[in-house]
Nucleic acid binder design. Sequence first.
DNA 1: CTTTGAATGTCAACAAGACTGACTTAGTTT
DNA 2: AAACTAAGTCAGTCTTGTTGACATTCAAAG
Lengths: 164, 164
Amino acid sequence: MAQGMSDNLLFLTDEQLRRAIEAMFFAYRGFTADPDRILSEMDYGRAHHRAIHFIHRSPGTTVNNLLAILGVTKQSLNRVLRTLVEDGLVQSRVGTRDRRERHLYLTDAGEALERKLSDAQRTRMRAAFREAGPAAVTGFREVLEHMMDPELRRYFTAVKEGER
Amino acid sequence: MAQGMSDNLLFLTDEQLRRAIEAMFFAYRGFTADPDRILSEMDYGRAHHRAIHFIHRSPGTTVNNLLAILGVTKQSLNRVLRTLVEDGLVQSRVGTRDRRERHLYLTDAGEALERKLSDAQRTRMRAAFREAGPAAVTGFREVLEHMMDPELRRYFTAVKEGER
DNA sequence: CTTTGAATGTCAACAAGACTGACTTAGTTT
DNA sequence: AAACTAAGTCAGTCTTGTTGACATTCAAAG
């Protein structure tokens, strides 16, 4: 069945697409399960995870940058950032060029948590990749990229280029 | 780079996995964006979408079944179900074999909304599949399946077999 | 140089939707 | 008759999103 399907895209029925949608739903649940467990033990949620992830990825990023990426209101993000700063996981430095801006950095403790969370997530992803096989991995990433909103995709691929 | 990566899984660095994680995050956002827009216009949320999806998929399913699949508490599901029944999108029938159970069905209006929501989602997914190419689709589904929690994966594949 | 307007971030209050825990009602099983 | 099960409800909490009002800072126009 998978064979016939990939031979010709016109054979993708609504029902097959519906199943792919469901797979996405279940897979995302698995994808977040491990970090969620770690986070709930320390009274954090996914919002904290997301903030930590993107501050790790782009140290010194401003609150406004983060807002654009996360797609939430600044008030919502601020609550999360405040607890992270209070708990000593994130450091907020006043901008030198523009003192209205706050530049965000992970402290050593913040980096440690980031590593713990992404380790858990990577372990599952690595296992899934191994079981699915090398060819599947490329296809997986290919489809994911095309499923993003165009502007987020630009942002995403921008980092890819930058990392080379 | 994608080539070298798929040649040997051992070359998957932590950083590449981290990027895959981020891709999953952005892609899921895109994946839910279209239904979210439709839902918010009618004062529903993702919770309603999920209930509608699984009742459509398994008409006559009981509340308990739904709880197991969705992984929420009955109080949480009940709130959603109540509004859907009140609004005439879902019908709840007392079980014939066991009259404690309530079997759930979509009304015509419910089916109409389901179709509207999944149409939006399918359109995006179909586009992503087309752009990524046939080979990518198989890999995509392969990886997703392996990323699920084992019990949900059993449930997921059970339907696959049943549909043949 | 001052005033005005825009950008950035913070505080407060509220809503949706998840959670736990205790309880009721109805039906089934032992 | 007693124990268990399915569903639903009530009350209270937490996370994470929302709006609205406000303080600070900067830049540009008068």
